[in-house]
Amino acid sequence: MDPDRQLVRLAKNGNKAAFGKLARRYRDGVLALAYDFLNDYENAQDVAQNVFMKAFKNIGDFEEKSRFSSWLFRITVNASLDARKSKIRRRKFLIKKEVYEKNGQVSAQPEWQDGIDDTLINALNKLSDHQQTAIILRYFHDKSVREIADVLDCSESTVRIHLHRAIQKLDKSLKKRK
């Protein structure tokens, strides 16, 4: 049984205090998950705050088929991926602008990575969204295959396939680096 059920039902009836309690319960997890996708606490904080606002606004749509935490993490994953895509688009635009203005060379290292030169992070960023989500939830958030399936809205066997392919890709990426 979902331990958050009572609070979720109250929050569905518009009880802000109940949702506040849920937000306090998951704020660290949501921030950490957003960071794992963005590798930047400033952006992760913005995403996490937006996730809670969005979750409170849409909690009426939560059908309680899965755990509240899975539903919240799904919102976080989607918001983080969206934030990362818009960040990359903005970065590409800035690079082009810089090149056009200065006619000089720019670093291949994206600025939003805050200088983290981690081979594993770089290898993770090359995975597909689903593969990356599966790895992050499984290894960095210690979620079960069932919970990951709820977040990704797919079957457990599909999650196992994502994990398997992700590990295969990571193996190749890390070998190249070596």
């Binding site: 506040g20 704020r27 921030l31 606490y41 400033e42």
Partner: peptide, 18 residues
């Protein structure tokens, strides 16, 4: 996470939901 960022994040969540 940097402590000041965590603090401002917690404050923001509290501000939103009390």
């Amino acid at each position: 996470a940097p402590p000041d960022r965590v603090e401002s994040y917690y404050k923001q969540v509290d501000l939103s939901f009390g």
